[in-house]
Design a binder for these strands. Structure first.
Lengths: 219, 219
DNA sequence: TTGAGTATCCCGTGTTTACCGGATGGGATA
DNA sequence: TATCCCATCCGGTAAACACGGGATACTCAA
């Protein structure tokens, strides 16, 4: 029998902590290493050299003190090997995104059945990630809106897109002309056409609009 | 008893189709509306007015003909109300991202147990999204790398960031000066500092780098 | 208190842009 | 065939830019 998965639970609500405890006690391959009511205390214990590093940290988002979100970075710092699963009451958009950007490996809602937490722990420990369906949905929508693939077709020709890209990389028109082995005035004309199509009137805004429209993120 | 969830299955492998069929037959609340071996045929049937619109489309990614990926947009067009769940053999990065960008509501691997497909159908039908743990993991990592939260701190001052943003929106220095009610030369100086910090030497590349570093995506 | 960092201001000069006019040939499409 | 779009080319001008030199004042931390 392998050593069980070591879990640290950071959650201020005593009742919910109890619920999680009961659920995990049933599982032979998972073990609550220790549990804390605030992020500060949990972090302090991680700092002490003697403390063993947990495999998984179950982290409540609404904690007294510094709060779960801000503490994520510190958990990652003090326990780099531990995977973090966020436990949240709500699927508030901002929280979800921030937590994930900070490096969480999972995001579960407390409204879920405890069984999902147990499954999530195993999943994450085996290298996967676990997301509540509602959170997953939000994430997908966010991704979709981030890259408006339709708008990929503003009508820029290949040449124009190529030149726009070079512009965004810092080359001036003369350099672009040399690089592409065409005349300076030709580049000038292309750039003019780019401005027309993007409805801008200078290079910085053309680059800005290109990024906003996702023109550089194709393929 | 409500009407069952109507599922369309698009999958060329007959054996796997059978597997899914068997699994869904067990479920009272899910029903296979119809099934096709290629995207083309499935789409044609959707085009005929008489065809009822499915709630869920289970779509294999590797299909003969146009292939699952390219067909996603057409499915969305012909059956806007249907949610699409991708069935894939591999969690190839590019496929995952493209499918999601095209508007899929789920992405499952064929290596998963059929029970997960059934669960996924219910989840998606109730407004959620379903992701295979491995796919979820990839997505999270992709998101994390997309916004290097830490790198947000290139050292641009608030003022500099503000000016850079205005530049990216098309204002020239003189206009920025007016907008911020400061002198033209002041703007010039700020811009110079921005170039230093971003290691660029003109406005288009500064804007380009700002987007690459995610300087405009904070908060 | 000293220094580092930020924000503000000024001048001057050469370079680069943005936009105006126009032109040619080639390829796709109707 | 005629038409449209693309890529290529040219010259001229006023405006904007990049960058070099300074300068003053404020805050914040060492």
């Amino acid at each position: 029998m392998k050593t069980p998965i070591q879990v640290m639970l950071v959650e201020d609500n005593k009742d919910y902590r109890e619920v999680v405890n009961l659920a995990i006690e049933e599982e032979e391959d998972i073990e609550i290493l220790d549990q804390y009511g605030t992020a500060e205390i949990a972090l302090r214990s991680l700092q002490s050299l003697s403390a063993p590093c947990p495999d998984i940290i179950l982290l409540d988002l609404r904690l007294p003190g510094m709060g779960g979100l801000d503490s994520v970075r510190y958990f990652r710092e003090y326990a780099p090997k531990a995977k973090i699963i966020i436990l949240s009451q709500s699927d508030q958009e901002a929280d979800v995104l921030r937590a994930i950007l900070l490096g969480a490996s999972g995001y579960l809602l407390k409204s879920a059945r405890v069984q999902e937490i147990v499954d999530g722990i195993r999943l994450v420990h085996s290298g996967g990630a676990t997301l509540d369906p509602n959170v997953a949905k939000f994430l997908l929508q966010n991704l979709q809106s981030r890259l408006p693939k339709e708008h990929l077709d503003i009508g820029l020709s290949d040449r124009e897109l190529e030149i726009l890209k070079l512009l965004s990389e810092g080359l001036v028109k003369k350099q672009i002309a040399e690089r592409l082995k065409i005349g300076y005035t030709t580049v000038d004309t292309h750039v003019g056409h780019i401005y027309e199509k993007l409805h801008v009137n200078n290079a910085p805004s053309a680059v800005g609009k290109a990024y906003k429209l996702g023109l550089f993120t194709k393929n």
